[in-house]
C-alpha cells in the first residue's frame, strides 16, 4: 500500500513583521498536521510567529522559458528607480 504523506511547502513570518518567506517543505497527512510539523521542524530556533502551509501540488509556478518575456521588460523601465532622477543637493533630502 502506497501511503506517502503529501508534500507541503512551508512559509514562515519571522519576528520583525516581514512577509512570510518560503523556508522548505515537509510531509504531513493533512493541513492541521502540516502546521504542527512545520512548527516542530522549522521553528526550533525561535524563527517564526506565523506559519502558512500549502500542499505542494497546489502551487502554480511560472515557467523558466518565460523568463525573458516575464522579467526583462522591466529592466528598461529605469525611471521607476529613485536614482534615475538627478536632484541638486541644494534641494535637500528627498
Amino acid at each position: 500500500m502506497k501511503t506517502e504523506w503529501p508534500l507541503w511547502e512551508v512559509f514562515i513570518r519571522g519576528q520583525h513583521g516581514l512577509n512570510h518567506r518560503h523556508v522548505g517543505s515537509l510531509h504531513a497527512p493533512d493541513a492541521e498536521m502540516a502546521i504542527k510539523n512545520a512548527r516542530d521542524v522549522y521553528t526550533r530556533r525561535n524563527e517564526g510567529v506565523s506559519i502558512w502551509v500549502v500542499e505542494a501540488a497546489h502551487i502554480s509556478a511560472s515557467s523558466p522559458s518565460d523568463k525573458g518575456p516575464l522579467y526583462e521588460p522591466s529592466e528598461s523601465k529605469v525611471y521607476r528607480h529613485p536614482t534615475f532622477f538627478d536632484i541638486p543637493d541644494e534641494a535637500g533630502h528627498m
Binding site: L26, H27, A28, K36, N37, D40, V41, R44
Partner: peptide
C-alpha cells in the same frame, strides 16, 4: 515512524 514525528518527539 517518520522524520516529522522524530523531530516532534524530540521537542
Amino acid at each position: 515512524p517518520v522524520l516529522e514525528e522524530d523531530i516532534a518527539l524530540a521537542n
